[in-house]
Simulated scan of single mutants.
Amino acid sequence: MTGTGDGICRGRVVVVTGAGRGLGRAHALAYAAEGAKVVVNDLGVGLDGKPGAGSPAQQVVDEIRAAGGEAVAHGGDIATSEGAASLVAAALDTFGRLDTLVNNAGFLRDRMLVNLDEDDWDAVMRVHLKGHFLPLRHAAAHWRAEAKAGRRPDARVVNTSSGAGLLGSVGQGNYSAAKAGIVGLTLVAAAEMGRYGVQVNAIAPAARTRMTEATFAETMAAPENGFDAMAPENVSPLVVWLGSSASAGVTGRVFGAEAGRITVMEGWRPGPTADKGARWTPAEAGEATLKLLAESEPPQPVYGA
Protein backbone atom coordinates (compact mmCIF):
# COMPACT_ATOMS: atom_id res chain seq x y z
CA MET A 1 0.00 0.00 0.00
CA THR A 2 0.95 3.63 -0.39
CA GLY A 3 -0.20 6.56 1.70
CA THR A 4 -0.05 9.27 -0.93
CA GLY A 5 -3.49 10.68 -0.12
CA ASP A 6 -4.64 10.05 -3.68
CA GLY A 7 -7.30 7.56 -4.68
CA ILE A 8 -11.06 7.18 -4.72
CA CYS A 9 -11.34 7.69 -0.95
CA ARG A 10 -9.14 10.75 -0.72
CA GLY A 11 -10.29 12.95 2.17
CA ARG A 12 -12.80 10.42 3.51
CA VAL A 13 -12.73 9.21 7.11
CA VAL A 14 -13.42 5.50 7.40
CA VAL A 15 -14.09 3.34 10.46
CA VAL A 16 -13.44 -0.41 10.17
CA THR A 17 -14.41 -2.72 13.02
CA GLY A 18 -12.56 -5.96 13.65
CA ALA A 19 -9.70 -4.48 11.65
CA GLY A 20 -6.75 -5.98 13.50
CA ARG A 21 -6.58 -9.13 11.40
CA GLY A 22 -7.99 -10.89 8.36
CA LEU A 23 -10.59 -9.13 6.26
CA GLY A 24 -10.78 -6.07 8.51
CA ARG A 25 -7.04 -5.52 8.34
CA ALA A 26 -7.10 -5.89 4.56
CA HIS A 27 -9.96 -3.38 4.32
CA ALA A 28 -8.21 -0.83 6.55
CA LEU A 29 -4.98 -1.03 4.54
CA ALA A 30 -6.87 -0.81 1.25
CA TYR A 31 -8.82 2.27 2.35
CA ALA A 32 -5.62 3.96 3.47
CA ALA A 33 -4.01 3.14 0.13
CA GLU A 34 -6.90 4.96 -1.56
CA GLY A 35 -6.37 8.09 0.51
CA ALA A 36 -8.73 7.54 3.45
CA LYS A 37 -8.03 8.36 7.07
CA VAL A 38 -8.83 5.22 9.00
CA VAL A 39 -10.08 4.41 12.49
CA VAL A 40 -8.89 0.85 13.13
CA ASN A 41 -11.09 -0.90 15.68
CA ASP A 42 -10.21 -4.23 17.24
CA LEU A 43 -10.80 -5.60 20.70
CA GLY A 44 -7.87 -7.97 20.33
CA VAL A 45 -9.73 -11.15 21.29
CA GLY A 46 -9.27 -14.74 20.22
CA LEU A 47 -11.41 -16.75 17.83
CA ASP A 48 -13.85 -17.51 20.64
CA GLY A 49 -14.18 -13.87 21.69
CA LYS A 50 -12.01 -14.13 24.77
CA PRO A 51 -9.28 -11.52 25.45
CA GLY A 52 -5.94 -12.02 23.71
CA ALA A 53 -2.51 -10.51 24.08
CA GLY A 54 -1.15 -7.52 22.18
CA SER A 55 -2.90 -4.80 20.19
CA PRO A 56 -3.55 -5.86 16.60
CA ALA A 57 -5.34 -2.57 15.95
CA GLN A 58 -2.21 -0.57 16.80
CA GLN A 59 -0.11 -2.84 14.60
CA VAL A 60 -2.35 -2.03 11.63
CA VAL A 61 -2.21 1.67 12.47
CA ASP A 62 1.59 1.44 12.51
CA GLU A 63 1.54 -0.20 9.06
CA ILE A 64 -0.65 2.57 7.67
CA ARG A 65 1.48 5.33 9.18
CA ALA A 66 4.70 3.70 7.98
CA ALA A 67 3.31 3.88 4.45
CA GLY A 68 2.51 7.59 4.85
CA GLY A 69 -1.17 7.28 5.71
CA GLU A 70 -3.23 8.53 8.63
CA ALA A 71 -4.88 6.19 11.14
CA VAL A 72 -5.82 5.86 14.79
CA ALA A 73 -6.51 2.74 16.87
CA HIS A 74 -9.71 2.13 18.81
CA GLY A 75 -9.88 -0.78 21.24
CA GLY A 76 -13.41 -0.38 22.56
CA ASP A 77 -16.09 -3.07 22.61
CA ILE A 78 -18.44 -2.05 19.80
CA ALA A 79 -21.09 -4.49 21.04
CA THR A 80 -21.76 -2.04 23.88
CA SER A 81 -23.45 1.31 23.41
CA GLU A 82 -20.55 3.06 25.15
CA GLY A 83 -17.97 1.37 22.93
CA ALA A 84 -19.92 2.09 19.75
CA ALA A 85 -20.40 5.73 20.71
CA SER A 86 -16.69 6.09 21.44
CA LEU A 87 -15.91 4.56 18.04
CA VAL A 88 -17.83 7.31 16.26
CA ALA A 89 -16.31 9.88 18.62
CA ALA A 90 -12.81 8.62 17.75
CA ALA A 91 -13.39 9.51 14.10
CA LEU A 92 -14.91 12.89 14.87
CA ASP A 93 -12.39 13.88 17.55
CA THR A 94 -9.34 12.73 15.57
CA PHE A 95 -10.26 13.60 12.00
CA GLY A 96 -13.26 15.93 12.33
CA ARG A 97 -15.73 13.86 10.32
CA LEU A 98 -17.07 10.38 9.54
CA ASP A 99 -17.85 9.26 6.01
CA THR A 100 -17.82 5.46 5.94
CA LEU A 101 -18.51 2.70 8.45
CA VAL A 102 -17.39 -0.85 7.69
CA ASN A 103 -18.89 -3.34 10.14
CA ASN A 104 -16.69 -6.42 10.13
CA ALA A 105 -16.07 -7.63 13.70
CA GLY A 106 -16.97 -11.20 14.58
CA PHE A 107 -15.91 -14.60 15.89
CA LEU A 108 -17.12 -18.20 15.90
CA ARG A 109 -18.44 -20.69 18.42
CA ASP A 110 -19.41 -23.51 16.11
CA ARG A 111 -21.60 -26.35 17.36
CA MET A 112 -24.23 -28.65 15.90
CA LEU A 113 -27.65 -27.46 17.04
CA VAL A 114 -28.11 -30.20 19.65
CA ASN A 115 -24.77 -29.19 21.22
CA LEU A 116 -25.20 -25.43 20.89
CA ASP A 117 -25.75 -23.94 24.32
CA GLU A 118 -27.31 -20.61 25.17
CA ASP A 119 -24.02 -18.89 25.98
CA ASP A 120 -22.57 -19.78 22.57
CA TRP A 121 -25.73 -18.50 20.89
CA ASP A 122 -25.76 -15.23 22.84
CA ALA A 123 -22.05 -14.56 22.41
CA VAL A 124 -22.15 -14.87 18.62
CA MET A 125 -25.35 -12.85 18.33
CA ARG A 126 -23.84 -10.16 20.53
CA VAL A 127 -20.68 -9.62 18.52
CA HIS A 128 -22.02 -10.12 14.99
CA LEU A 129 -25.53 -8.73 15.14
CA LYS A 130 -25.42 -6.30 18.06
CA GLY A 131 -21.88 -5.38 16.98
CA HIS A 132 -23.33 -4.28 13.65
CA PHE A 133 -26.40 -2.56 15.06
CA LEU A 134 -24.75 -0.32 17.67
CA PRO A 135 -22.02 1.27 15.49
CA LEU A 136 -24.61 1.71 12.74
CA ARG A 137 -27.07 3.28 15.16
CA HIS A 138 -24.53 5.79 16.52
CA ALA A 139 -23.13 6.63 13.08
CA ALA A 140 -26.64 7.03 11.67
CA ALA A 141 -27.62 9.38 14.49
CA HIS A 142 -24.59 11.55 13.67
CA TRP A 143 -25.36 11.60 9.95
CA ARG A 144 -29.03 12.40 10.53
CA ALA A 145 -28.05 15.32 12.74
CA GLU A 146 -25.65 16.56 10.05
CA ALA A 147 -28.38 16.35 7.40
CA LYS A 148 -30.88 18.20 9.57
CA ALA A 149 -28.27 20.91 10.17
CA GLY A 150 -28.00 21.45 6.41
CA ARG A 151 -24.76 19.47 5.98
CA ARG A 152 -26.07 16.49 4.00
CA PRO A 153 -23.55 13.63 4.25
CA ASP A 154 -22.25 11.52 1.40
CA ALA A 155 -22.04 8.58 3.77
CA ARG A 156 -21.59 4.85 3.28
CA VAL A 157 -22.06 1.74 5.41
CA VAL A 158 -20.71 -1.67 4.41
CA ASN A 159 -21.97 -4.55 6.54
CA THR A 160 -20.50 -8.05 6.56
CA SER A 161 -22.84 -10.97 6.11
CA SER A 162 -21.81 -14.41 4.86
CA GLY A 163 -22.81 -17.23 2.56
CA ALA A 164 -23.78 -18.93 5.81
CA GLY A 165 -26.31 -16.17 6.41
CA LEU A 166 -27.76 -16.51 2.92
CA LEU A 167 -27.78 -20.30 2.61
CA GLY A 168 -27.18 -21.70 6.09
CA SER A 169 -24.10 -23.68 7.16
CA VAL A 170 -23.96 -26.99 9.00
CA GLY A 171 -22.60 -26.57 12.52
CA GLN A 172 -23.08 -22.80 12.44
CA GLY A 173 -26.67 -22.19 13.52
CA ASN A 174 -25.75 -19.20 15.68
CA TYR A 175 -23.41 -17.67 13.09
CA SER A 176 -25.82 -18.27 10.20
CA ALA A 177 -28.72 -16.70 12.08
CA ALA A 178 -26.64 -13.66 13.02
CA LYS A 179 -25.40 -13.17 9.46
CA ALA A 180 -28.95 -13.51 8.10
CA GLY A 181 -30.03 -10.87 10.61
CA ILE A 182 -27.33 -8.53 9.27
CA VAL A 183 -28.92 -8.72 5.82
CA GLY A 184 -32.29 -7.71 7.27
CA LEU A 185 -30.66 -4.87 9.19
CA THR A 186 -28.94 -3.70 6.00
CA LEU A 187 -32.19 -3.52 4.07
CA VAL A 188 -33.95 -1.56 6.82
CA ALA A 189 -31.05 0.87 7.28
CA ALA A 190 -30.83 1.50 3.54
CA ALA A 191 -34.54 2.29 3.39
CA GLU A 192 -34.51 4.53 6.46
CA MET A 193 -31.25 6.41 5.97
CA GLY A 194 -31.34 7.23 2.26
CA ARG A 195 -33.14 10.51 2.94
CA TYR A 196 -30.14 11.62 5.01
CA GLY A 197 -27.50 10.87 2.38
CA VAL A 198 -26.49 7.46 3.70
CA GLN A 199 -26.10 4.36 1.53
CA VAL A 200 -26.03 0.93 3.18
CA ASN A 201 -24.93 -2.32 1.55
CA ALA A 202 -23.67 -5.72 2.66
CA ILE A 203 -21.08 -8.16 1.43
CA ALA A 204 -20.98 -11.93 1.74
CA PRO A 205 -17.25 -12.60 1.43
CA ALA A 206 -15.26 -15.79 1.19
CA ALA A 207 -11.61 -15.49 2.21
CA ARG A 208 -8.91 -17.00 4.38
CA THR A 209 -9.23 -15.64 7.91
CA ARG A 210 -8.84 -17.02 11.41
CA MET A 211 -12.52 -17.96 11.27
CA THR A 212 -12.36 -19.91 7.99
CA GLU A 213 -8.88 -21.39 7.69
CA ALA A 214 -9.68 -24.12 10.23
CA THR A 215 -13.32 -24.78 9.28
CA PHE A 216 -12.62 -24.91 5.55
CA ALA A 217 -8.91 -25.75 5.69
CA GLU A 218 -8.58 -27.40 2.28
CA THR A 219 -10.57 -24.75 0.43
CA MET A 220 -8.81 -21.85 2.15
CA ALA A 221 -5.22 -23.07 1.81
CA ALA A 222 -2.85 -20.68 0.04
CA PRO A 223 -1.36 -22.07 -3.18
CA GLU A 224 2.37 -22.42 -3.58
CA ASN A 225 2.24 -20.53 -6.86
CA GLY A 226 -0.21 -18.40 -8.81
CA PHE A 227 -3.25 -16.41 -7.77
CA ASP A 228 -4.12 -16.73 -4.09
CA ALA A 229 -7.88 -16.90 -4.56
CA MET A 230 -8.69 -16.93 -0.84
CA ALA A 231 -6.50 -13.99 0.19
CA PRO A 232 -8.63 -11.49 2.16
CA GLU A 233 -7.14 -8.67 0.09
CA ASN A 234 -9.25 -9.88 -2.86
CA VAL A 235 -12.45 -8.78 -1.10
CA SER A 236 -11.28 -5.29 -0.15
CA PRO A 237 -11.48 -3.54 -3.56
CA LEU A 238 -15.27 -3.97 -3.62
CA VAL A 239 -15.53 -2.83 0.01
CA VAL A 240 -13.45 0.26 -0.75
CA TRP A 241 -15.56 1.12 -3.79
CA LEU A 242 -18.80 0.67 -1.85
CA GLY A 243 -17.40 2.98 0.84
CA SER A 244 -16.44 5.69 -1.65
CA SER A 245 -18.38 8.44 -3.39
CA ALA A 246 -17.96 6.50 -6.63
CA SER A 247 -20.72 4.09 -5.53
CA ALA A 248 -23.41 6.79 -5.68
CA GLY A 249 -26.88 5.30 -6.10
CA VAL A 250 -25.97 1.79 -4.90
CA THR A 251 -27.81 0.93 -1.70
CA GLY A 252 -29.76 -1.89 -0.12
CA ARG A 253 -27.83 -4.56 -2.00
CA VAL A 254 -25.89 -7.67 -1.03
CA PHE A 255 -22.76 -8.66 -2.93
CA GLY A 256 -20.83 -11.90 -2.96
CA ALA A 257 -17.07 -11.33 -3.04
CA GLU A 258 -14.61 -14.16 -3.46
CA ALA A 259 -11.26 -14.44 -5.26
CA GLY A 260 -11.65 -12.44 -8.51
CA ARG A 261 -15.44 -12.78 -8.53
CA ILE A 262 -18.13 -10.24 -7.61
CA THR A 263 -21.75 -11.41 -7.51
CA VAL A 264 -24.95 -9.44 -7.00
CA MET A 265 -26.89 -11.67 -4.62
CA GLU A 266 -30.60 -11.88 -5.36
CA GLY A 267 -32.60 -12.87 -2.30
CA TRP A 268 -36.17 -13.75 -1.55
CA ARG A 269 -38.65 -12.81 -4.26
CA PRO A 270 -42.05 -14.25 -5.12
CA GLY A 271 -41.91 -17.50 -7.08
CA PRO A 272 -44.72 -19.81 -8.24
CA THR A 273 -48.02 -18.83 -6.60
CA ALA A 274 -51.50 -20.28 -6.32
CA ASP A 275 -54.51 -18.21 -5.21
CA LYS A 276 -57.81 -19.97 -4.53
CA GLY A 277 -59.58 -16.74 -3.67
CA ALA A 278 -60.90 -18.39 -0.54
CA ARG A 279 -59.63 -20.39 2.43
CA TRP A 280 -57.84 -23.66 1.66
CA THR A 281 -58.44 -26.88 3.49
CA PRO A 282 -55.21 -28.46 4.78
CA ALA A 283 -55.41 -31.16 2.10
CA GLU A 284 -55.97 -28.59 -0.64
CA ALA A 285 -53.12 -26.43 0.68
CA GLY A 286 -50.81 -29.42 0.62
CA GLU A 287 -51.79 -30.44 -2.91
CA ALA A 288 -51.33 -26.89 -4.19
CA THR A 289 -48.00 -26.51 -2.42
CA LEU A 290 -46.60 -29.70 -3.93
CA LYS A 291 -47.54 -28.46 -7.41
CA LEU A 292 -45.85 -25.11 -6.72
CA LEU A 293 -42.69 -26.81 -5.45
CA ALA A 294 -42.54 -28.84 -8.65
CA GLU A 295 -42.56 -25.56 -10.62
CA SER A 296 -39.98 -23.81 -8.44
CA GLU A 297 -36.20 -23.65 -8.54
CA PRO A 298 -34.58 -26.08 -6.06
CA PRO A 299 -32.82 -24.40 -3.12
CA GLN A 300 -29.07 -23.96 -3.14
CA PRO A 301 -27.09 -26.35 -0.93
CA VAL A 302 -25.99 -25.03 2.43
CA TYR A 303 -22.79 -22.99 2.41
CA GLY A 304 -19.64 -25.08 2.36
CA ALA A 305 -21.44 -28.27 1.38
Rank of each mutant, 00 (worst) to 15 (best):
A84V: 01
A140R: 04
M125Y: 13
E82F: 06
D93I: 05
A139T: 13
V102D: 02
L136H: 00
L98R: 07
L101H: 12
V157H: 02
A79W: 01
I78C: 10
A145M: 15
P153Y: 08
G165H: 02
R152E: 13
T94S: 15
W143T: 10
G76K: 05
K130E: 12
V72R: 02
R137G: 02
L101K: 09
W121V: 10
A145V: 07
T80I: 13
A91E: 08
A155E: 09
R97G: 09
A79K: 01
M125D: 00
F107P: 01
A155C: 13
V114W: 15
N104S: 05
H132W: 04
R156T: 05
V88T: 07
L92Y: 09
L166C: 05
V124P: 10
A105R: 03
F95L: 06
G163S: 09
A85S: 14
W143Y: 00
A105S: 11
S86E: 06
R111D: 15
V157G: 03
G69L: 09
E146F: 00
P135A: 09
E70S: 13
P153V: 06
W143V: 04
L98W: 14
L129Y: 06
R152I: 08
V127S: 08
V127F: 03
G83P: 07
A85D: 11
G150L: 13
A73H: 08
L87D: 01
G163Y: 02
V124K: 03
A145Q: 11
A91V: 01
I78N: 04
V158H: 04
L92E: 15
M125Q: 15
S161M: 00
R126E: 12
F133N: 01
R156D: 06
H142D: 06
E70N: 10
A149E: 13
D77R: 12
L129P: 04
M125E: 10
D119E: 15
D117P: 11
A145S: 13
L108S: 11
D93M: 00
I78Q: 02
E118S: 05
D93R: 06
R97P: 01
G83N: 08
G106I: 08
A73R: 01
A105D: 05
H74C: 03
A91D: 01
G150N: 12
R109G: 06
H138A: 12
H142M: 00
D154C: 08
G83I: 13
V88M: 09
H138G: 02
R152V: 13
D77T: 12
R111F: 11
T100N: 11
T160I: 00
L87G: 07
F107T: 01
A155T: 05
W121H: 02
G163W: 02
F133V: 08
K130P: 00
M112F: 15
G106F: 03
G106E: 11
A149N: 14
T160Y: 03
